[in-house]
Simulated assay, not measured.
Amino acid sequence: MVASPKAKEAMPAPASRPAAAGGPPGEDAADDTDDTASTIGSLPSSTASLSQSIFEYRKIFGRTYHSDVGNAEAWQPNDARHAEAMDIFHHLNTLILSGKLYTAPLPKKIQKAVDIGTGTGIWAFDFADEFPEAEVIGTDVSPIQPTWVPPNLKFEIDDLNLEWTWPDNTFEYIHSRSLIGVVEDWEGFYRQAFRCCKPGGYVEDVSNSVMAFSLDGIVKEGSALDQWGKVFFEGGNKFGRTFKIVEDDIHRKCMEKAGFVDIVIKDIQVPVGAWPKDKTQQELGIWAKMALESDLEGYVNYIWGVVLGWTPEEISTYCAAFRRELKNTRIHGMYTTRVAYARKPE
């Protein structure tokens, strides 16, 4: 079920930086914006032939990205460093969900499930282990998943923003996670999910808000933590992919419009840093801090540098300030993780 790349309009010229610009990002925010593609080996596929461009990566600020950088899924790098950061986030998300991979009330036995935008494939891998009798598919535009997988799991190259080619009523469970800044049309996303979901089946998404806050007001306006969400919001507007998934209540509105019922929305406040006194919350905060610090530049380079026009020096300065605030236990930063699931009527 491979989709050929979709033609994209040219990216707009870099926008001017927000007035409140700060700066630390590091050695990775380098000076080269080399677009030279590096070809990787072919990936086995049981579906349509792949365009060679899918197997070509581009270098931006010394990092590799999916070849079609105007694509909805291309704002994060696909190199080994960022893959490690995504796997750390996977562990963090399981802690947030109390050790679970999902919250939808799935039956003990399901036949077919799909993980849309699977990334490194770690969630699909764990889900396939938990449901050994189910056929599990993980899809992504970059072939960065492991080659050794459980016998009931396979990975496919696919762009979630193109028309889904699965037949109607294919999956009992459709899972996605961290698609902020990725989906071009959330109404279209859930419309396709509704079509491909079996009657009685579930769709579920986990998204993290990029807005930092503190219950005690210690995250000050203009601080690096405060700027994080604001700059991503502006970048999303320029990029054409919203980062306001939680703030605009995207899941509820689009699930309802698609026809899903029994919609459940749960917001979880996640600390960032080792400041909480409660041991469980402190563990969450330490892992959240680790997930961000493991590749902070990877999260900001494309949106902030390519889209908004920040220089490598400005990005580096901002990232240094951001790291200092993460280490300061007097700053009680938090963000919201939203878990949303819904059922397709029988």
Rank of each mutant, 00 (worst) to 15 (best):
A74S: 05
D68W: 04
A72T: 03
A80H: 14
V69A: 06
F55E: 12
F55A: 09
T64H: 09
G70R: 03
K59Q: 05
S46T: 10
E73T: 08
S46W: 10
N71V: 02
Y65W: 03
S53W: 12
F61N: 07
T64V: 08
D87C: 12
G70Q: 05
A48N: 14
E56M: 06
R63H: 02
D87N: 14
S46N: 10
P77G: 05
A85D: 00
D68P: 01
H66C: 05
S51T: 14
T47W: 13
E56N: 10
T47G: 14
F61E: 04
I60V: 08
T47P: 10
R81I: 15
A83V: 13
D87Y: 06
W75D: 01
Y65M: 01
I60Q: 00
P44E: 09
Y57A: 02
H66M: 06
D68Y: 11
W75Y: 08
S46I: 08
Q76R: 08
K59M: 05
D68E: 11
D68F: 07
G70A: 10
Q52C: 11
A74H: 00
S46D: 09
R63Q: 01
V69G: 02
A83H: 10
L50Y: 11
F89I: 09
I88C: 11
G62W: 07
S67E: 01
A80D: 14
E73L: 06
D79G: 02
A74T: 00
G62S: 08
I88K: 10
G62Y: 09
H82N: 11
A80N: 14
I54N: 02
E56W: 04
S51Y: 12
E73R: 06
S45W: 06
A80C: 12
A48M: 15
G62R: 07
S67Y: 02
S46V: 09
Q52V: 12
E56I: 04
T47I: 12
V69W: 05
Q52L: 10
H66A: 06
F61G: 06
E84W: 13
E56Q: 13
S46G: 11
K59V: 07
S49W: 07
P44H: 09
N78G: 02
A80Q: 14
K59R: 05
A72D: 02
H66T: 04
H66Y: 05
R81K: 15
E84C: 13
S51I: 10
G70Y: 00
W75R: 01
G70D: 03
A48E: 15
R58F: 03
S53G: 12
I54Q: 03
D87P: 04
G70W: 01
A48W: 14
R81N: 14
H82K: 07
F61V: 06
K59S: 05
D79K: 00
F89K: 03
P44L: 07
D68A: 06
D87E: 13
N71S: 04
D79H: 07
T47M: 13
Y57T: 02
A74Y: 03
V69T: 09
V69S: 05
A72M: 04
P44Q: 07
N71W: 00
S51H: 15
R63S: 00
T64G: 03
D87H: 03
V69N: 07
R81A: 15
R58I: 05
R81C: 12
I60H: 02
A85P: 04
D87S: 09
